[in-house]
Amino acid sequence: MAESIVQYKDVHKSFGDIDVLKGIDLDIQPAEKVALIGPSGSGKTTIIRMLMTLEEPTMGVIDVGGRNLWQMEKKGEWVRADDPHLHSIRGDIGMVFQHFNLFPHMTILENCMLAPVLVKNESKKEVKATAVEMLEKVGLGDKIELYPAQLSGGQKQRVAMARALMMRPKVMLFDEVTSALDPELVGEVLEVIRDLAKEGEMAMILVTHEMDFALDIADRVVFLNDGVIEEEGHPEDILVNPKSERLQDFLSRFTVNR
């Protein structure tokens, strides 16, 4: 087995008195596609938000490429990670949000160019060429001069994906990326993710309620319930032949077409 790109070791997270995650152990292999499913409030989104450094774990360790994300060594002791430490690891992670979070004061092209130019100091000319290519890939090559407000939800989400891809992350996180979309726009977004999954080299963690989609593209499905991993395994085993009662109960609310 190759070395994991991401490793959660007994990770806990509480918000005030509420324990959202109660000991998560999870290994992600390079290029692996993992779907996180579970009832709302089960902590799926918190798991990936901690990896994106948007939430700090209350306890436990998250390793990215063998490096401890939230702690760093200083004079032989492990201390809380500072900004430069997080910055040095965060480049390997990308994220697409439920509500897109495009920058409304910039064109689509500028949205895609901003980070590579500022963070990676790449030349504007090269970044622009890559950005145009990337936007063409998600089917928006003719819209690069528009502002986010001029796009449909599905188009916005495709821009958000192109923008995240510009940083060439090793792990891409998808946080319920179709939940805020009108039903008829879900397909075009899933199509782009499916293409990305086929390309292969990037690991993907998808928090999703699209069970058919998870069955289709995931290498592994992880069922989260009440802050713990209740069941995980091959998509067929999890989604078609669930063992635990809770998972059966959860899946009964969806119709999986297989």
Partner: peptide, 10 residues
Amino acid sequence: EASIALNLSK
């Protein structure tokens, strides 16, 4: 959050 995800500095 989006700017953090894109690794922009503070």
